[in-house]
Amino acid sequence: MDAPVRELSFAQAIYEALAIAMEADPRVFLMGEDIGVYGGAFQVTGDLVHRFGAERVRDTPISELGGAGVAVGAAVTGMRPVYEFQFSDFATLAMEQIVNQAAKMRYMLGGEVSVPLVFRMPCGSGTGAAAQHSQSLEAWFAHVPGLKVVEPSTPHDAKGLLLAALEDPDPVLVFEHKLLYKMKGPVPQGHYTIPIGEAATVRQGRHVTVVASAIMVHRALEAAETLAQEGIELEVIDLRSLRPIDSRTIIESVKKTTRLMSVYEGVKTLGIGAEISALIAESEAFGYLDAPIVRLGGAECPIPYNPELEKAAVPQVPDIVEAARALAGGRT
């Protein structure tokens, strides 16, 4: 029988995944700045410290390098730590541990060691948090073999992907867009996982394939709704995982629609859209393209503090509508 489904927020879905994993597996424990009594910068860990104790929900000092290093050490010695960055921007302070240690150990130690840890990475703009607290750096990490990178767009996928990450033998970075934390959606009770590396086609369409992730999935779906009234049908693919990337789903979709657009919040140049464009150009789908590939990415600037400029710096619904309309109409 299917588990009952309730409406939960994205943050509640993550909380639930953490609680399920901690109940099921004594090796799972949480670390991060202010995740204990305070409940986390975005109130995701909530009352977990009261349910599982300060031993398993550990406040760490203001040192991301230290926290990440302890997490790597705990993982290689048999624990399953979850380290929360207050903002994923601060992972820049922990790059040595993430990129040079966590990602490399399995390879450098002949496969005899694995690093089963999860980094939780609140990311994205739109909260007025300015340049150092609003970035979308997921493509950086997706460039590193040895790491897995996922980026859910719904409460359902947030829970399923986090549980999959917790069971994965390798380091997984879960990017959580800050604007999504309050978004509600159906979430089944109990344990389930979403396979890492599988995209989801969240809307079928004939005219343009739009590949998006996180908040951009919702903007693309809204744009699709608008354009449907004009007879333009977008097919929206929610990438869900950046590494490994589900190229097959994108290729098959482009073969059907003949047009490809990617929408992502990270800076446009050298971002996720470049990878998606290249994988299509290299695949059999190339011969099906009936228009140049279009990328809608973030502006080539740090995220501005001014709310209007902040909005203008990343793709919004009207931008997607306009670009997709031009693409479908053969005007790009």
Partner: peptide, 22 residues
């Protein structure tokens, strides 16, 4: 476009004889 080239080949059309609308 790549698709136009493929279709032209399949229809045996010379591309030069096809007016482009893009």
């Amino acid at each position: 476009t790549p698709l136009a080239r493929r279709l032209a080949r399949e229809h045996g059309l010379e591309l030069a004889s096809v007016p482009g609308s893009g």
